[in-house]
Design a protein around this nucleic acid. Structure first.
Lengths: 216, 216, 216, 216
DNA sequence: AATGAATGAGGGTTCATTCAT
DNA sequence: CATGAATGAACCCTCATTCAT
């Protein structure tokens, strides 16, 4: 009675396996036949669980993002202190990212693929996530602090870029990474403006540069 | 070497057009027919300029990266001061990125596509670029400063992520962006360790968190 | 034979619904899933009532044709006068056709689809139907009247083509249509040969025609 | 120089071969692979000549119909006498039909398949053809003659139904068929109304009929 | 230096059908 | 009786690539 759980469990397993395939080969190079092999479900059998390859990608991204956001909201409920909230954001994001690197790579890397309703849904959630962080930073920002939009996306860039270089055998654990990135970002974000950003004295005369700025 | 210039000029135009197509649709979704339409060269005519779609991607990436690195080297020759050199790196990267967003998006986004020799060539250059920045940061790093690998890629992440959010009508010009990111990064990177990264007092007792760290 | 009636009633409903789907989309474009949706019976549940899509088509056609022929035989028993019998045929065919347009469209339009025993059964009945009409016409035919086979199928053509153009809001009721077609057919069929068929004088010199008769 | 003729010739051959396949198996049961086999052109090679299976059907139908109408117009230009014009219509239609039975079967039988622009184009031409015949008949029609719409489509029905029964070894040649059908139709169409259509005396009392008219 | 014509391989998707329950 | 879940076969179509010209 109530077989839905069985259906759901199988769907979740398919999403996980599919994420692995998408992460490894990229969405477009991955074929449904690859998914079939990875999931041990027949090619046509897969279509019982989703109705198109694009929907599969959406399900992967949406489930992944949904879990990320659900956990974030839960933890964000604990405090209203902006610095603590920022730490929660970074901690949540990094831990989730490193624990679910394949899904998060798919979420980060295949952002442009979705169209129509699928795209809108994911984009709305991303925007809302970014707005949350933006809001936290706006509370934290010193008088003449950095441009908020730039800072927000710089933080996301630091974190989302990880899938391109992270090597678990070589790089920091999630807790250490959290410490490093928070240190890096927060000290930069909170630093007073007149302290020269290049760490030097005042003589930052515009450097000569030859051919760099011509386009192309 | 009589009409090489004509050949070269046409090839460069093809690379530019192809970069536009790759940037818009992604490498895999872009077809040679799309390139043919964008370049106004017949489908088979294109194969006079490259021998496979993969080689075309390589040429796009290699030319783009080559220009970026050539300009960097030229400007880096002006000084040995690490802070000045870091500014040069960021300035060069950002200006080039914003001036050649399509090519740079292709370079950043389609990093996994290439195989064999093509892949090696690009990866070698990327590693050498990262090593340069890593070297500069190692000269700059305070006694108990951040992990160098993490910091290096955090910097690249901040910069390379730009193509996902940058809107020329809304966001900062290259010069301002340079200032913002340098400020953000350098103050974080140089900040002394004991100054708590969360900008708060000392009581950063490990926060309670409930369900966050379970994977999946 | 307790609940056979229930089985039969449900089967008949399925046949009616299936006829609607086949009529609308055509046999091949209609999927069993479409039938499932139209009947509100689950996909696999349908197979309790028929063993293949082809059998379903056969059942639809056979039941439809069976009803048509049963009614025809019943009414044909009333008289041996060939003219009256022809009227009965036309009346029966037209009324049944207009009252069961969907089924009759399927019977007319999907004649080639069936194979094997199914095909033979339907074809035998169709031949027998045509033979009946052929027999009536042979009794009616004047001395140098029209070719019987041609006339028989001309009559069927007039009637069976109806599904391609009939619009209940615009076209005649069954009774009027019966009158019109009988008038049209019978006056033509009984007309003496020497009365020129083109309604003109005798000078039907073969018309000049230029390029018409080359094939292709 | 001017290879278009070669391209056109090949396309026309493909249309002919495709018509044969469509006529034999029906549009939906015919696969592009079947067309490939019949034309001796590779599966993908076919798509150089059309862009979808539906377009192929359109091209077949449109070319066939176009030829039919072109010849008709040419011959219709010869006279304004309605009876002569009707004969021209029937002659043209029957000859073309019997000479190009496969194409005409596809045109008649697969009328519902096309969608969108393709459908509109064909339907427009069909309507215009029917209007032409309708116009001729309206000139010919006696005072209380048959309903024009019914008569027009009765004529088309007689002619278009042919593909379902015609056997060249057994049935009349085009010229004879023309004579028979014209005789049949014209005498019926021109016959005065009060001459009872059943060819009998006046006693056509409404016949008794039992169960015929119940629907279903 | 360039192209029209052609192709093999593979891709996403649908479908009639089955079978355990 | 009825269904959810699953599948093999087939289908339409696209693509990178080639080759004669």
């Amino acid at each position: 009675m109530g077989d839905r759980p069985s259906y759901d469990r199988k769907l979740l397993q398919i999403l996980r396996d599919a994420a692995g395939v998408f992460a490894e080969k990229g969405y477009h190079r991955a074929s449904i036949r690859d998914i079939s092999a990875a999931t041990d479900v027949s090619l046509s059998g897969l279509y019982y669980y989703f109705s198109s390859k694009e929907e599969l990608l959406f399900l992967v991204q949406n489930h992944c993002f949904g879990t990320l956001l659900a956990r974030l909201e839960e933890d964000l409920g604990q405090t209203t202190d902006p610095a603590a909230r920022l730490r929660i954001v970074v901690r949540n994001h990094l831990h989730f990212f490193l624990d679910n690197m394949e899904e998060m790579k798919v979420l980060s890397h295949e952002a442009d693929v979705l169209t129509g309703k699928y795209r809108e849904t994911i984009q709305r959630r991303k925007r809302s996530y970014a707005d949350t962080v933006h809001g936290i930073l706006s509370e934290l920002r010193p008088a003449d602090g950095p441009d908020l939009r730039t800072a927000t996306f710089a933080l996301f860039g630091m974190m989302n870029w990880i899938y391109t270089w992270y090597n678990p055998d070589r790089d920091l654990r999630a807790e250490e990474m959290e410490e490093e990135l928070l240190h890096l970002f927060l000290n930069g974000f909170l630093a007073p403006r007149n302290r020269r950003s290049d760490g030097e004295g005042g003589d930052s005369a515009p450097m000569e540069h030859s051919s760099i700025w011509r386009s192309g």
